[in-house]
Amino acid sequence: MLDIVIDARPAAISAGFNVRRILPFRLRRMVGPFIFMDHAGPVTLAPEQRPNLDVLPHPHIGLSTVSYLFGGQVTHRDSLGVEQIIRPGEVNWMTAGSGIAHSERFEDPATLAGGNLEMIQTWVALPEADEETAPAFANYQPRELPVFTDTGVWMRLIAGSAYGLRNAVRTHSPLFYLHVVLQPGARFGPPQGYPERGAYVAKGSVEVGGRTYTAGQLLVFSPGHDPILLAREASTLMLLGGEHLGDRFIWWNFVSSRRERIEQAKADWEAGRIALPPTDNAEFIPLPHERSKPAGTAAPEPLS
C-alpha cells in the first residue's frame, strides 16, 4: 500500500533560514515529475534578523519552481525583470528552462514578527523536449485555483488535474498538486489515474492501513493501490504526483537529463552568462566549488 515513507530532514537554504527537506531522498529521488520539496516555517524572528532569511539571486535550469504559502509573504525577483509578491493561496510558477536566476526576499517585518511565514516550495522536472524552453514566470491568484469542499474536506487544486478539477496553471507533463485540509475523522483518498502519487503531512496526523503518520512525513503510495487516509486530528496535506519523466541528474540548483548540460550550466553561472535580476543584482550566491562534479540518482541533495 505504501511504497516508502520519507521523513523530512533539516536543511539550510540561506545563512539563517532552516527548512525541512522532503525531496530528493536517497531512496526515492522523485514522485512523478516532482524532484524537490521543502517546507519552511512557521518562522518567528525579530526585525533585525530578517536579512538572514533572504535567498540571494541564484540560477536554475531544466525545471519549474513552484512556491505556495500557508502564511506570510515573499517577494520574488528574476532575470526576466519580474517582481512579484506572493501571498497565501497564490501560486508562483517559474519555468527555468534554458536558464534563469531569481531571488526570494522576506521584506515584511510584520509577517516575521507574527510567526506567520510558512511556505512549501517544490521543483517540477521538465520533459526532455522542454528542458531548453524559454524561461517564463506566472503568478496565479486564488480565484484561478478551484476549491472543492465535502464533509470534513477542503481542497485547492494548485496545478494539474485531479478529482475532475482543472485550472489554467501551465504545466509541461501530466501531474497533480493539491492543498488539502481534513477535519478529524475525515476520510480521503489520493487521485486515481496517475502511476506515482504521494501525500505530505504538513500538519496533524493521518492513519493509513492501521498505522498513524505525523507532520513532516511524505507517504508515497504503491502503484495500483488506492489507500484511504483517515484524519486522526485536524490535518493539512500536500498531495502531489504524476507521470514519471525518467532519470534526472541534479546538482545544486540544476536539473537535467544530460550530465554535460549541468557542466555547461555551472560554467555559465560562474562566467556571468545567466543574467541576474535587474532590480536585485548587487549580490548573488556563488557556485559551490566543493561539489565539483554533477550528481546522478545517488547524488547529494541540492540546495534551493
Rank of each mutant, 00 (worst) to 15 (best):
L56T: 04
A110M: 12
R143V: 12
A40I: 01
S79C: 04
P127L: 12
Q73D: 15
Q73N: 15
L56E: 08
T65H: 05
A113L: 13
P142K: 12
G81L: 06
T133V: 15
L56D: 08
T151Q: 13
V124E: 03
A40S: 07
E107R: 14
L53G: 03
L112V: 12
P57S: 11
T133Y: 08
T44K: 14
V66E: 00
A101F: 04
F106D: 01
G99L: 08
P57C: 11
E131K: 13
G114F: 05
F137D: 00
G99D: 07
T44D: 05
W123L: 09
V31G: 00
G99R: 03
F36D: 00
Q141M: 13
P127R: 07
H76D: 05
T151F: 10
F106A: 02
H60V: 03
D38R: 07
A136G: 07
A138P: 02
Y140H: 12
M94K: 00
P51M: 06
I86R: 00
F106P: 01
T95H: 01
H39C: 05
R87V: 09
G32T: 02
A138Y: 01
P146V: 07
V74R: 04
Q49W: 09
V55I: 15
N52H: 13
T44C: 09
V82H: 07
D108S: 14
F70D: 01
P142D: 14
H58V: 09
T149C: 12
N52Y: 14
F137H: 11
S103Y: 05
T65P: 02
R105D: 11
V124W: 02
V43D: 01
T122G: 04
A129V: 14
A138K: 01
I120H: 01
I61V: 15
S64I: 00
S79K: 03
Y140V: 04
V91C: 02
E131M: 13
M119L: 15
A101E: 03
M30D: 13
R105C: 10
R105M: 14
E118Q: 13
Q141D: 12
G72H: 07
S103D: 07
R143L: 11
V66M: 10
A96N: 03
L45T: 01
S103R: 02
D78F: 02
E144G: 05
